[in-house]
Design a protein around this nucleic acid. Structure first.
Lengths: 111, 111
DNA sequence: TATCTATATAGATGTTAATCTATATATGAA
DNA sequence: TTCATATATAGATTAACATCTATATAGATA
């Protein structure tokens, strides 16, 4: 049970999941887990175009999953580990039956 | 780093993530974390139509995230905790820099 | 058999989003 | 200032998918 005490909305969580549910963005995050990289280093690793990478990096940034700093004309990216850990920690609750939860909303066998 | 020793494909992982990235499916899984429920119990909890629920349950089943048994004319659903735990465990590696990894494929500063 | 409940399928629609090409902007170097 | 490199934006296209209504199927019960 993820939604303890109504603090998390499924919408919010699904928004994060949509961001990492793209295999290319997932790979970008995974590569950044080894350390900071610039966009052009990442681009060489993939087959898609530069605007496509730019689009993915913007999506990741807009959702606060990565952090960026400027270094000359390069953009240096790194994971926002705090946000990512928070996300994966929440997901780990998905198969746990921790109480209190919203399960009381469900009345079994009423149909 | 998720992809240790090339055993996991980003495609496979992203496929699972796409399934749980829908807020309604996420909520279905979360409700099932409290125990087995039939489709009609779930349906009463949501606003969408019965065919829509049927579609979501099929998606979850096809991807092996839930298990089903027949009880009369009802479908009883429960989490496939093994698969779900495997998924969340893998995701937890996303911000770790465990070696060996595929980071060697990336050559920093070649651009 | 007839009917009710539970679930599935078919087909249509609207939206989101991943990708591309073309072009613009910004930074550093000559 | 001029050019090269790095990145962003605009606009178009295509595919995926969440949802709906209508209808079919399957099981239980009378």
């Amino acid at each position: 049970m993820i939604k303890e005490e109504n603090k998390v909305s499924y919408q919010t969580l699904s928004q994060y999941l949509k961001v990492i549910a793209d295999s290319n963005r997932l790979e970008i995050l995974d590569l950044l887990s080894c350390g900071e990289l610039c966009a052009c280093d990442l681009l060489e690793h993939f087959e898609f175009s530069q605007p496509t990478l730019s689009h993915h990096m913007k999506t990741l940034r807009d959702n606060n999953l990565i952090l960026m700093r400027k270094d000359g004309n390069k953009n240096m990216y790194r994971l926002n580990t705090e946000v990512i850990n928070n996300l994966t920690d929440r997901l780990s609750l998905l198969s746990s039956d921790t109480v209190p939860c919203i399960c009381e909303d469900i009345r079994k066998g009423t149909c």
